[in-house]
Simulated assay, not measured.
Amino acid sequence: MKTSSFIQKLKLKLKKFETVENYDEQKWYKRDWTRQTSEQFLSNKQIGVFVIRQSESIEQALVLSVKVPIYIHSSQVCHYVLIKSKNGLCIRGNENKMFKTLNNLVDYCSNTRDLIPVKLDVDYYILESNTIYNRSNSLNSISSNHSDFSFVSSENEL
C-alpha cells in the first residue's frame, strides 16, 4: 500500500516538473531584458545567437529574440512571441506545432529552420561557459607558477 502511494506522489511531482520549467537555469533566458537590451546584446553576435525573455506587452508570453542575416531583417534581430497554453507552447503564427517545454522548442529550433529562418545557436552558450572557465584556469595557473615573482627584475638592474 505504501509503495503505490509513493509512486502516485512521484508521478504527480514528475507531472508538475514537466509543466513548470525553471527558465532561470538556462543561460539564454534573460527574464528582465527588454527588446532594446536584447537587440544591443545580439548586435555583435553571430547569426543564430538568441535570448528568450518575458514579453513587455503580452502578459504570460515569452519572446525569442534571434540574430538573423540582414536580408531577413534590416536590424538583424527578429523577435518571435512564444505563446503558452495548457497544451504547451508555440511560436505565434505556428500554433500547429506545439512543444511540451521551452527546452523542447529550443532544441527543435536549433536543429531545423521550419519555424524560424535560422537555426538557434545553442553552442554559443556552451562555448561562452567554456571560455570563461578556461580563462580563469589560465589565470590561476599563471599566478601559481610565478607566485614568488622572482622572475621580475628590480629597478636597480634596469
Rank of each mutant, 00 (worst) to 15 (best):
V152A: 10
N156C: 05
N44L: 08
Q76M: 11
K86M: 02
Q76C: 15
V20P: 02
N44F: 06
S143V: 09
V77H: 06
K119T: 02
H79Q: 12
N140I: 03
S129P: 02
A61P: 01
H146A: 10
C78N: 09
L14W: 03
V106P: 10
F50K: 02
S150V: 03
L127Q: 15
F50W: 06
D107Q: 11
D32W: 09
F41P: 02
N156L: 13
V63A: 07
G88K: 03
I7K: 07
Q54Y: 11
H146I: 09
K97W: 10
F6P: 00
I126K: 14
P69G: 01
K27I: 10
H79D: 12
L12E: 13
W33A: 04
N87G: 08
K86I: 02
T34V: 04
D32P: 03
S129C: 04
V81G: 06
E155I: 15
S136P: 07
Q8T: 05
V118W: 07
S110V: 00
V152P: 09
Q76I: 00
L127V: 14
Q60Y: 14
N156H: 12
I116N: 07
G88V: 00
I70R: 12
L12M: 07
L42A: 01
S57R: 12
D32G: 14
E56H: 03
L89I: 08
S85L: 00
K9M: 07
W33K: 04
S110T: 04
P117Y: 05
D114I: 07
I58M: 12
N134W: 05
T37I: 05
R53F: 06
Y125W: 14
I58L: 14
D107H: 12
S143K: 06
T3G: 00
S154K: 11
K13A: 08
N134S: 15
S147T: 04
L64A: 03
F151E: 13
R113Y: 01
K13V: 07
L115C: 08
R135I: 09
K2I: 03
R92H: 13
D114E: 14
Y133K: 15
K27G: 05
K15T: 01
S154D: 12
K84N: 07
Q60D: 15
T19R: 01
L158W: 11
N156Y: 11
R113M: 13
S154W: 08
Q36D: 14
E39T: 04
E155R: 13
L158D: 11
S153C: 08
E21F: 00
Y133H: 15
L120K: 06
G48Y: 04
K27C: 05
D32R: 11
Y29G: 03
